[in-house]
Design a protein around this nucleic acid. Structure first.
Lengths: 147, 147
DNA sequence: TTTACTGCAAAGGGTTTGCATGAGG
DNA sequence: CCTCATGCAAACCCTTTGCAGTAAA
């Protein structure tokens, strides 16, 4: 999604299009590391040195309600992603990275449909996380140094 | 799991077994509503009127590290559950309830194995959430009253 | 007896809110 | 022009930390 499509999507909901919002949305859409609010704020600060965290929070809330991005609450803070298609997140409990994987996307889509039908649950979105150790981290270690 | 098994599990890790810990663990294990820390504190307060939130937090942290319970961070606060088998949580964005479903458990188990092998990711646990509207809530409504 | 847990109080920090100014439509 | 977004500051509240007394082993 580019800024043109983005602006159209925002206008459709009667939401005001501002340069800050476009920049924040672009940062999240182009990010592949599930950035935190702090990280998003840092990256947007290149273009808008005086932008505040409050503005970033407000914009992320708007984008979330538009269904353009998804908030992923973690224990310490939330992270954000723009990949709304059914997929799994790989969360390394050692180095803290969060990466998307395409593996099993069809299974998740099937799962979603099955749950929707059998549980009579009207699904708007989903979150699939796997917590463990990525290939480069020693199994059994944790981000806080414990084991 | 009863308190005897629980005590054994705690002792195995050199963790001290106290009445408060047993009570907190029992509350989480017997709960089917994914209670918050506040709710767990309230329920344990019946037995221990002077117990504090700090103790509840500390105990939940211990139980989590033992792999007896799982913390589920949400936007407002965390909830806890003792069902660690692969399953999906149904999160109603209207009434706020979180319920486990057995539907698709085999799919999730298959998914986990596939991701583990193909992504070379050593998985310790997982979280599968579906966000939407339960059968008794009007589709399109939200907990904060917006739509 | 030793070590770790509990209860209490205070601090920490991510997130939200209130308000005056400024920009979008 | 009118409404809403931004920037700034303060408040909010969940969660963590420090410490003295106490209970587990």
């Amino acid at each position: 999604m580019n800024q043109g499509q983005l602006a159209t999507s925002l206008k459709r909901w009667g939401v005001r299009v501002t340069p800050q919002r476009l920049a924040i949305a672009e940062v999240v859409i182009n990010a592949d590391d599930h950035p935190s609010v702090q990280q998003i704020h840092e990256r947007v600060s290149d273009q808008f040195p005086y932008i505040t965290l409050a503005t970033v929070y407000a914009t992320l809330s708007v984008l979330g309600k538009q269904g353009l991005i998804q908030e992923l609450p973690f224990q310490k803070q939330s992270r954000y992603e723009a990949n709304l298609t059914p997929h799994a997140n790989l969360v390394c409990v050692s180095c803290g990275t969060v990466t998307d994987t395409e593996i099993g996307e069809d299974l998740i889509t099937t799962l979603r449909r099955e749950v929707s039908v059998k549980a009579e649950f009207d699904i708007a979105s989903q979150r699939v996380d796997f917590y463990g150790w990525c290939p480069t981290c020693p199994v059994g270690t944790y981000q806080d140094g414990s084991r």
